[in-house]
Amino acid sequence: MLTVQNLSVSFTQYDTGLTQKQLTVITDLDLHVNAREVVAVVGSSGSGKSLLAHAVLGILPHNAQISGTILFKGEPLTRQRQASLRGKAIALIPQSISYLDPLMPVGRQVHQAARRAGVATTDIRQRVDHTFSRYELASTVKQQYPFQVSGGMARRVLVATAAVGQADLIIADEPTPGLHPDLVAETLNHLRQLASAGKGVILITHDLEAALQVADKVAVFYAGTTLEIAIAEDFVNGNLRHPYTQALWRSLPQNEFIPVPGAQPNPDALPDGCLFSDRCPLVTDACLTERPSLRLVRGAPVRCIHAEG
């Protein structure tokens, strides 16, 4: 469905006066999403999770330079193709319920999303009704404004706007920040259902625990690169390959709650070698000179020369 290979994104910024500087925010990023699959993208803030979504949707600002390949259904995603696919074949579930139009009844918003997604005019009404009942929204809710519905219902409306069209790829950008566990589980279930219906789903989140509840694969991002694309069971089975992924798992409160000290490298001062080298317990001289390439270890891609099969 979607293949991202060696994606790099850098921004040109003015420093002082007329001197420009390059900020490399995504370096050699890889991701692969199949139909019927939920791929979670986890990483701390500034690891390039949202930028990946923006790169796929083609909504990066003009001062961004992109290199690498993004293939959607086997064909490269060009700017024109992105513009014609966004909201139709590729849909976004945004982060916050404030993305709903506060001045429009929620029914009309889902209706509009269906129209923009290219659903035939004669089918729209039926499609919207069907989507509303699927997400257990009463038909009276259609006439209500976002402020009149509860937080949980507004979340379902957001999912409905993405699910009402025939999108093949759904990108959910932090759909569960600071929500009550029941609401988190409900939103994640909706994503799972969309995948079961044959769509590819990218779940962008900083919440590893939430990701593991629903994902088939977990791509771990760090400082703008993919360190590992683990299978969800690898976490519980202790089959993780990259030291950062292992550390991330260890740092959960229900596990050992032990963090790796330090912080992600700054985008204007990235190290020459492995991006995790300054915090890695396994670091050797070879790590400092060259960026490790992605290789298969125990059936999953990892970017570490020390990972063993």
């Binding site: 920040p177 600071g178 590893l208």
Partner: peptide, 17 residues
């Protein structure tokens, strides 16, 4: 008050420790 709700697991543990 939800001091680390927006943060990844490692940063959360780091701040808490």
């Amino acid at each position: 008050d939800e001091m680390t709700a927006m943060l990844d697991a490692n940063t959360q543990a780091l701040i808490w420790q």
